[in-house]
Structures are given as C-alpha cells and as structure tokens.
Design a protein around this nucleic acid. Structure first.
Length: 348
DNA sequence: AAGTCGGGGGT
DNA sequence: ACCCCAGACTT
C-alpha cells in the first residue's frame, strides 16, 4: 500500500462506518478543546456525562474563564488528572486576555495553552479549523504500529519520532478531508483496531496491515517494559463533631491537587498530635484499611475516625460538612468511599 | 529519559 | 489481577 492510499481508504471508511454522533463533533473550538482535554487518558464512555454537565454550567469559554477554579474542580471530580481542570481554567483566562477571547486557530498557538500538547493542539486545529496537522495519541500509535509494523515501545523517543514523521506523511493533501481523516484515525483505533481483539475482518486496511498479515496484532504495539509497583501507606483522619465531618483543601501541587479531602498524617503519633492540637478527642473505632491503585504505586489508607471534644471551629483551611453531603463534595474516590462508610455508620 | 498524575473499563 | 486509555508537565 502506497502511503498516500492510507488517507484515501481511511476517509472513505470513516464516512461509511465511522462515528458521527459524538456530542463534541462540532466546529466550535471551545467545545472541541474541552472534549480533547477530557478525553486525555480517559475513555469516551466516561467523558460523555461530564462533558454534558460541564457545558450546561459553562456554555462558552467566557463563562468558564469567569468562574472560580474551585467550581471547575468540583465539576471535574471523578475524572482524575485534576491538573487538567486547573489548566483548563488557566487556559480559558489566557484566551480571554492574551487572545482577546478569540480561540487561536494555528496549532503552534493552541499549543501555548497550558494542558495542551502537540497532539491535542493538532486535534483542535483540525476539527475546529480544518488545519493540516497530524495527531498521535494512543489510538493512532496502535493503528500505525500495526499497519506499518513498527517495533519498539512507542513511549521511547526514537519510536515516537518515527511515528510522528509517519503520521505527517500519511495526511491527506486536501484540507477539507482533515476532519474526516482525523476522526477516522480515532474511530478505527477505538472501534476496529482495538487493543484486545481487533476486528481485522472489517478493517479497511487488513490486506495491507503488517500485523494482520503476519498474525502479530497481539505483539504490536510493543508493550511498556514491566516495572515493580511500590506500596505506600498513609493515615486519614475523619474528624467528626455534631453530625459534621472536617474536610481540608489539598495543596494544588501533587496528588489530588486542589481537591477537598480528609486530613492526612504519616503515622499514629502524628495522628495523636493532630487531635491534641485541635482540642482533643476520642478515636471511635478501628476501621479496615482502604486500598487505592495508581499507575505508579498502590496506596493503603488507614482511616482514623475521631470525635473532637471541641465544638466545630474551623481549624485551618477547610470546612465542616454534614455527613450526608461530604461524599459528594468533590473528594478523591477513596475518600468518597470512606465518607460513604462514615455516613452509613455515624457515631452516636 | 524518567517520574508524576486518577479513575474506570476491558479482559 | 493486570493492562491501558483522544497526554502533558516537571525534574
């Protein structure tokens, strides 16, 4: 298969068999950008509801820029990678005062926005402005490594560079074909050239696909080299008083940045110190640990429910929330699990 | 180049 | 239980 034939086949396939009903298939750059950020490392099925909710609250970019970042984070909670939400808000403000409210139409300018890398910038440039730019996300890497038989872990610099240059050579010549071509690349990866059981029998590339012809779809793309995942332990205090629980806002840097959460301490001594510093109280019971898995480590949380002796005077930066409301206050998933348990078995 | 950041779905 | 997903940013 000549390289120019790839785009021809893909565009024809997309028009007949691609997805045409995704809510963000519009030309409004704000909506395209929002969807691309939400879709980073997150699957379509998970994004749909968040996208609708987000647009209902922030129908346009000026609405988003005018909102407090805390509200953006609350709408984001559950999607993960919370720096995306902070960057989204920063970028909206940047478009307002650096680009006078007009979304930039060139890939290099879009790429200046925080949270937007080359691939995301290219996707916005293509869908909103029909620019001739290549994307290279997980779907595209899978399709290209299989069709063209590219060996090596795509996270490796040399492999990724080969993929970028290949992706650029494959672009259709006509600007008008760019949205269908780019959508076709994503659709093929998402619905046909899937990770587990690719549907090669209905693939428009099957006769030219290196992996399909050599029975190597299970080997490509080359998987990430194995690593040992460490385990970390932490304690989370659950300070309760008068039917309310104390939540603190975490620093914007690091894990769960900017989210409301339970106070975290490193060990039991630090836990006792914390209670003493806040007027003293009783540890209510020993609760079972909660495990939470990240990409790079496993976190074991020991919950420490405490009834504070002192009345609910706010210590530091946070809030006393009614037990029934706390689980939905935009907290990290494992904290929500703890708060639901707390609300289900409130201290007498 | 390697490490960090999350939650959820597929297998 | 393990893998990865419409990646970007920091060190």
């Amino acid at each position: 298969m000549q390289e120019h034939e790839f785009a021809t086949r893909l565009v024809a396939w997309q028009r007949l068999h691609g997805r045409h009903d995704l809510p963000w298939q519009v030309s409004d750059p704000y909506r395209v950008w929002l969807s691309e950020i939400m879709l980073q490392q997150t699957q379509v099925s998970a994004v749909r509801a968040y996208y609708a909710r987000f647009l209902a609250r922030f129908p346009s970019l000026p609405d988003l820029a005018a909102a407090p970042v805390e509200e953006v984070l609350t709408l984001w909670s559950g999607l993960g990678y919370y720096s995306r939400a902070r960057n989204l808000h920063r970028a909206a403000c940047m478009v307002m005062d650096r680009f006078e409210g007009r979304f930039p139409a060139v890939r290099e300018q879009i790429e200046q926005l925080p949270g937007v890398g080359r691939s995301t910038a290219a996707a916005v440039a293509v869908f909103a402005f029909s620019r001739r730019e290549a994307i290279l996300d997980g779907n595209v890497k899978r399709v290209l490594t299989r069709v063209f038989g590219i060996e090596g872990f795509p996270g490796e610099r040399a492999v990724e560079q080969r993929l970028w240059s290949l992706a650029e050579r494959l672009l259709p010549q006509e600007h008008e074909a760019m949205p269908a071509y780019t959508q076709g690349l994503m659709d093929l990866g998402a619905t046909v050239c899937t990770r587990g059981r690719p549907a090669c029998t209905v693939c428009p590339m099957v006769d030219a696909c290196h992996a399909a012809q050599h029975g190597r779809t299970a080997d490509l793309p080359t998987p990430r080299p194995r690593k040992i995942i460490p385990v970390r332990h932490t304690l989370m205090l659950m300070p309760v008083a008068s039917g309310r629980v104390w939540l603190e806002r975490r620093p914007s840097e690091g894990i769960w940045g900017g989210l409301l959460s339970l106070p975290e301490v490193s060990d039991t001594t630090a836990a006792e110190d914390w209670v003493a510093r806040h007027g003293g109280g009783d540890v209510l019971s020993d609760w079972p640990e909660v495990e939470h898995a990240f990409t790079h480590y496993r976190l074991v949380i020991t919950p420490v429910p405490v009834r504070l002796a002192a009345p609910p005077v706010a210590p530091g930066s946070g809030a006393w929330l009614p037990l029934a409301e706390a689980p939905d206050a935009g907290v990290p998933a494992p904290v929500k699990k703890l708060l639901l348990r707390l609300a289900g078995a409130p201290p007498a």
